[in-house]
């Protein structure tokens, strides 16, 4: 399959992730949206890697997966702390940034 198709698919994936992050109230689902975005990026990496015949793309995808794992760990830990503090994971109520 031509690389363009993979790229388009990766963008679609990224967009769905973005939409999830933007419109969902549940912080968990928002985190899942972020995972989707990362996977969109990964897909693009791999597609280009094949196009160019260069394995560096694979290495970066590998790093991104590791990063995603770290991000999920810390992000979920923050959610747990948030839940402990205010008994909710509703992002609309987590507006401490404006203080």
């Amino acid at each position: 399959m031509p690389t363009t198709y993979y790229i388009v698919l990766s963008f679609v994936l990224f967009l769905i992730g973005t939409a999830g992050v933007l419109v969902r109230r549940n912080a968990l689902i928002a985190l899942m949206g972020i995972e989707l975005q990362l996977n969109g990026g990964n897909l693009a990496m791999l597609a280009f890697s094949r196009e160019l015949g260069d394995l560096k793309g694979h290495v970066f995808a590998f790093f991104i997966i590791a990063l995603a794992a770290a991000e999920a760990a810390v992000g979920l830990a923050i959610l747990v702390a948030l839940f402990r503090g205010r008994q909710t994971v509703n992002l609309d109520e987590a507006t401490l940034l404006k203080r």
């Binding site: 109230r25 968990l28 689902i29 995603a68 979920l76 839940f83 994971v89």
Partner: peptide, 21 residues
């Protein structure tokens, strides 16, 4: 990662009234 998610969901599983904002 999915195991992690599921654990967290188990801890804070709550039904949402209005999931979309």
């Amino acid at each position: 990662i999915m195991v992690l998610f599921i654990f967290v969901i188990m801890i804070l599983n709550r039904e949402e009234v209005a999931p979309f904002s």
